[in-house]
Amino acid sequence: MGDLMSLLPPLLQGLQVTLKVTGGAILLAVPLAILAGLLRLSTWRLARWPAIAYIEIFRGTSALVQLFWVYYVLPLFGITFPAITAGIIVLGLNSGAYGAEVVRGAVQGVARGQREAAIALNLTPLHTLRRIVLPQAVAAMLPPAGNLFIELLKNTALVSLITIADLTFRAQLLRADTLRTLEIFGLVLVLYFAVALCITGAVRWLERRLARRRGERA
């Protein structure tokens, strides 16, 4: 056990970087998903088509290729990002594109009668969206959003390929030094799983809180 615990410090250092990349990417992905998902539903072409292009490009191409483009190709055009910033940008954009479809589906899932009632009450479209549609849609968004956050966490392993010393990168270095492949990657699995459980717990807590608030309003 003592030998096993000696492997933890460098892995925990890598986990801190993984959590930083995950958190930064989530902070970028959430507003992007909401904005692109709503614009995707717009009747105004100048708003809808850029949203469609963003969603389809980032969903239809490899996250790894996107990462290499931002980190290795953009500098050829004079646009350079630090490695960790490039990782956050790419993972945030990638997850935001998938999240936009979650937002679109949840908004479309709100009963048409709710909108018709809002029109009858002379509510503006923005007021209807903010006070009636989004509060109901958020509850439907949370479970798939939790899945996307966990997928984002797992995709952070890609950033090890652009020299970021995340959990996977640290594990590879440690394995090269000690050749203790089974113990090292066993610990890595446990650490990823523990973080995924935390994300799942946080999403379920939000679901319960929203359900209680809806119950109180009812």
Rank of each mutant, 00 (worst) to 15 (best):
V17N: 12
L19H: 13
K20M: 14
A25C: 05
I26M: 09
L27T: 02
V30G: 01
V30S: 00
A33T: 09
I34A: 00
L35N: 07
L35Q: 01
T43W: 06
T43R: 11
R45T: 13
R45E: 12
R48S: 06
Y54I: 05
E56F: 06
I57E: 04
I57T: 08
I57G: 07
G60I: 02
S62D: 00
V73N: 03
I79Q: 08
T80P: 05
P82A: 02
A83L: 00
I84N: 03
I88V: 15
I89T: 05
V90F: 12
G92H: 03
G96V: 12
A97I: 11
A97N: 06
G109N: 04
V110Q: 02
A111V: 10
A111G: 06
A117D: 04
I119H: 06
L126H: 13
T128A: 11
R131I: 07
I132P: 04
M141H: 15
P144N: 11
A145L: 15
I150S: 01
I150V: 13
E151R: 12
N155E: 06
N155D: 12
I162S: 06
I162F: 05
I164Y: 02
D166G: 14
R170C: 13
Q172H: 06
L174M: 01
D177Y: 01
T178D: 08
L179V: 05
L182M: 06
I184N: 01
L187A: 06
L187I: 09
L187Y: 01
L191A: 07
Y192E: 09
F193D: 08
F193E: 07
F193L: 15
A194I: 12
V195R: 08
R204C: 11
R209V: 13
R209P: 05
A211I: 05
A211N: 08
R212N: 03
